[in-house]
């Protein structure tokens, strides 16, 4: 067991790495809420689907990296019609979308239970290297996950702030009606955003599969943290989501050094309640959200 500075650092880095994965998933959640007003309860289950599909592809091809490429594509193919034909009529009404996505969540979970089974399974680490750092040996794959997540987040950021399609999405986030009046094809933006958000969750699932267990209820744990993140960061605020994800996960990671996981989660919850008391719209949220 590592001691002293290395010990704390170990947990902090662990928290930060989870923070990057959580940031990836929450960014999708926040984007989907911001553009179409969907509170997506099924987001955690899309993460789960990502992990489950990854498990199948790894056992099929024996190569983890192929699944990282294919799984997002499959999820995109599922997400697009889901948005267009199931969720479209509910958009803009937070509680209706929440109930509707609970319905979708039930369906996804039960399908996973029926096909994948109820027993947690493991994927072996695709990169069996470990680094020594301040007397602590750290698995290389986790660092790689952090790097990939960070790269994807930067990519999404560049996409949203530097490309014309990203500008369309942000314009729709600010004012959908006006965006439509300016001649933006809102239909495409809606489908595109939902696909992007879902793909982010699925990538999170694929990346997390080797460092956690693949289980049909694994999404519940993640969606809870993601919801706390978007609440603290401010619903629909992308910067807020990112900062809150990194901050809360690091805090939770550091506290896991002294507390049980449930106690650490309860502390995060208390932080959320405190933030809500002071700022009901979250740290970076606008008043109208």
């Amino acid at each position: 067991m590592p001691e002293g500075v290395g010990f704390i650092l170990f947990y902090l880095i662990n928290g930060l790495i989870w923070g990057l994965i959580i940031a990836l998933i929450s960014l999708g959640l926040s984007l989907i809420f911001g553009v179409m007003g969907i509170v997506n309860m099924a987001h955690g289950d899309i993460y789960m689907i990502g992990a489950v599909l990854s498990f199948y592809f790894v056992s099929l091809f024996g190569n983890f990296w192929i699944s990282l490429l294919i799984v997002p594509l499959i999820v995109a193919l599922i997400a697009a019609p889901t948005e267009r034909f199931i969720l479209r009529p509910f958009e803009g009404h937070p509680s209706v979308t929440m109930i509707a996505t609970v319905g979708i969540s039930f369906i996804l979970q039960q399908v996973a239970l029926a096909t994948f089974g109820g027993i947690p399974k493991k994927i072996s680490s695709p990169w069996e290297v470990s680094f020594d750092f301040l007397g602590v040996s750290y698995p290389g794959y986790r660092l790689l996950v952090a790097a990939i997540s960070a790269l994807i987040i930067i990519g999404v950021w560049l996409f949203l702030y530097r490309t014309s399609l990203g500008i369309l999405i942000r314009a729709s986030m600010q004012d959908k009606e006006m965006a439509s009046a300016m001649g933006i094809n809102v239909n495409k933006v809606l489908i595109g955003t939902f696909v992007l958000g879902s793909v982010l969750a699925a990538i999170g699932g694929v990346l997390a599969a080797p460092i956690s267990q693949v289980f049909y209820l694994m999404g519940n744990d993640v969606i809870l943290l993601c919801f706390i993140v978007v609440i603290v960061g401010g619903l629909g605020s992308l910067e807020g989501t990112l900062i809150a994800a990194l901050l809360l996960s690091s805090v939770e990671g550091a506290m896991a050094a002294f507390l049980t996981p449930t106690e650490a989660r309860a502390m995060i919850f208390i932080i959320m309640v405190a933030v809500l008391m002071l700022r009901p719209q979250g740290l970076f949220g606008s008043n109208s959200a």
């Binding site: 509170v39 509680s95 919801f227 978007v230 009901p280």
Partner: peptide
């Protein structure tokens, strides 16, 4: 809280 916050916070 506003509607979206209410559903999420109660779920939490």
């Amino acid at each position: 809280l506003s509607e979206a916050y209410f559903v999420i916070v109660t779920a939490i």
